[in-house]
Simulated assay, not measured.
Amino acid sequence: MTSSLLQRRRRRLAAARLYLVSDARPGGRDLESVLAPALRGGVDIFQLRCKDATDAEILEAAQVAREWCEVADALFIINDRPDLVAATGADGVHVGQDDTPVAEARRIAGPDALVGLSTHSPEQVDAAHEQGADYIGVGPVHTTPTKPGRPAVGPDLVTYAALNATLPWFAIGGVDTDTIDPVMLAGANRVAVVRAITEAEDPERVTRQLAHALEIGPPGARRPRKSSEERTAEIQATLEPIPEGVRPLPLQIATATAIALGLVNLVLAITGHSGRGGAGTLLVYCALMFAAAYGMWNKRYLAVLLFQILLAVLVVFFFLFLLRASSVGDVALSLAVMLPAGALFWKLVRVLARLQIPPARTA
C-alpha cells in the first residue's frame, strides 16, 4: 500500500505551481538570502542541485534548505542523490535521464520519497508514468547555461506534455518574467525556474511576479471552466483521509450528542412525558438517534449526512422560535441550541469531505 506520508507529499505536489532549483551558492550568495525570500514570494517546491559539491557541503546546504522549507510548508527535493534523502530530510529526489533510474532511486530513497524525472522528448514524457515517477520536468524550453550541451525543446514539447502527460509536470529552461506567458500559452500551468530567481536582485519580488502570472494565466487566454470532478479533486487535495481507527473530535461530539438525544427521548417515553406525539414517536426518534450514533462512530457517510440534516432543522426551528421570542429565557434557549448546533454542522462538513477521499491506491 502507498504510505500515508507519500500520499500527503503527492497531494502537496499536485497543488504546487512554482518550483525553484538552485545550488548552495545561488548567484554567489548565501542560500538562505535567496531561498527565504523566494519561499515568502510563493515558491512551492525547492530543489537543491549541487553537482560538484562534497557530501558534507550538500548536507550543510540541505540543513538550511530543509529548515526554511519546513517553515514555508514547501516541498524539499534533492538532486540526483537518493542515498542522501534520509540524511538531508528531503521530501524526495530528482533524477535525469542519464542518472539513477527511477525505480532504483525510489528503492534507495525509501517508500515515502517523491521521485521526479527530467524529460526532453515525447517518448520520455510518455514513459515517465510507467517508470514510476511522481512528477516530471519538461524542457529545457529555451537554451540555458544551467544545462550546457542540452538543446532547447521549444514550446512544442510543452504543448505535447499539456495534452498527454499523466503526471504533474513543470516546464523548465529559461523561464522568467518575460518568457512565462508564452510558456503558459503553450500549455504549461507549472514552471521550474533557476536564474530568474537565483540571480534576481530582489528574489521575493520576482517570485511574486512569477506566482501571480501562474495564478492569472497568460494574457488573452480564456481558462476552461473546471468540471465538478476537477473542483472536488482540488478540494480533496487539501484534505487528509481519516486514518483507520481515528475519529475526529467533531465526529465524537456528534456521536455523543446523538446518544444523549436518544437517551433523553427514551426517558421521556418511559416516564410518560411523551407529549402530543405519544410514546411511539419518541421511541422511533430514539431508535433513529442510536442508529445515527452507531453509523457515525463507524464513520458511515450517510449517517453523518443525516445527522447534519437534523442539525440544520434544529437551527432553522430555533431561529424561527427566536423571531417569536417573548422573553429573555426564550432568547437564551434559542441561542443555546443554535450556536453549538451550527458550529457542529460546519465542523462535520470537513469530516464529510474527508470521508469521501478515495482509499489509498496500491503502489
Rank of each mutant, 00 (worst) to 15 (best):
S4I: 11
Q7C: 12
L18N: 09
D23C: 08
R29F: 11
L35P: 02
F46H: 13
R49V: 04
K51M: 10
I58P: 02
E67Y: 04
E67D: 13
C69M: 05
I78G: 00
P82F: 01
A90K: 00
A90R: 02
G92Q: 01
I108S: 03
P111V: 00
V115I: 08
T119Y: 07
Q124L: 06
Q124S: 12
A128F: 02
Q131K: 15
P148K: 09
R150F: 11
Y160K: 07
A161G: 02
I172F: 04
R195S: 15
R195A: 14
I197V: 13
T198E: 04
E199H: 14
D202K: 00
E204F: 01
R205Q: 14
A211F: 05
E215L: 10
I216C: 09
G220E: 15
P224C: 08
R225V: 15
K226M: 14
K226S: 12
S228R: 14
E229C: 05
T232M: 12
A233N: 14
E234G: 15
T238H: 14
P243K: 07
V246Q: 13
P250K: 08
Q252M: 15
Q252F: 11
I253D: 12
L263H: 00
N265P: 01
V267Y: 04
G278M: 09
A279V: 02
T281C: 00
M289V: 03
M296G: 01
N298G: 01
L305D: 12
A312P: 05
V315M: 11
V315Q: 06
F318M: 14
D330Q: 14
S334L: 09
L335I: 10
W346A: 11
W346R: 10
V351L: 06
A353S: 13
A363V: 12
